[in-house]
Amino acid sequence: MKSAVVQLPGLNRDRDMVDALTKISGHAPVTVWQTQTEIPDVDLIVIPGGFSYGDYLRCGAIAARMPVMDAIRRKAEQGVKVLGVCNGFQILVEAGLLPGALMRNTSLRFVCKEVLLEVVNADTAFTRTYTEREVIRCPVAHHDGNYFVDEETFKSMEDNRQIVFRYAAGTNPNGSLSDIAGVINARGNVLGMMPHPENLIEAAHGGTDGRGIFASALDAVAA
């Protein structure tokens, strides 16, 4: 399976993401710069974390209006899998590829720690290596991870099983609505999540709980 990692000024988790994808799939991903209007033929496009455009205006707002996002939107419409982690998630909601918004943490503090995630929906292209309601460990590092969505949209997201990850066991680090940590689009091919699964994929990280997301998306395991 081929993958691509998007690069924008201010993103700083791209190398971690390239590393994770290379180790898990056995192939290095291609990197795609923000001005590119075409994306090579890949199965998975990842927007990594960081601080694109210095978080100016709103986190991810300026990045979401760059030419590469139109290319990503077209690929998503064709069914290509898209994963946004942390700032990548913020960019996807700002681009309208995912519902809702990510606001300042209720504590007003940047949080950098490990949390527990409940896999709410294990029947997605990104989570099928996990079991339903399984609780996994995952690091978070963000200032604006407080997910918000209006009541009507929330209801339809619940009905469509679009809430994929929730912070478990009182570990919600940002005050997000309904403990939401990750959501998927209605079609099931665009996932955004605040935690960083790419930072928990090998023994040197202290665990491999994050590996399953990439293994699922890259078909690196038997379906």
Binding site: L57, R58, A61, I62, R65, V93, E94, P99, G100, A101, M103, F148, V149, D150
Partner: peptide, 9 residues
């Protein structure tokens, strides 16, 4: 509509 405001919030 396009940039200055996020009309979701």
């Amino acid at each position: 509509e396009k940039l200055l405001a996020n009309t979701v919030i």
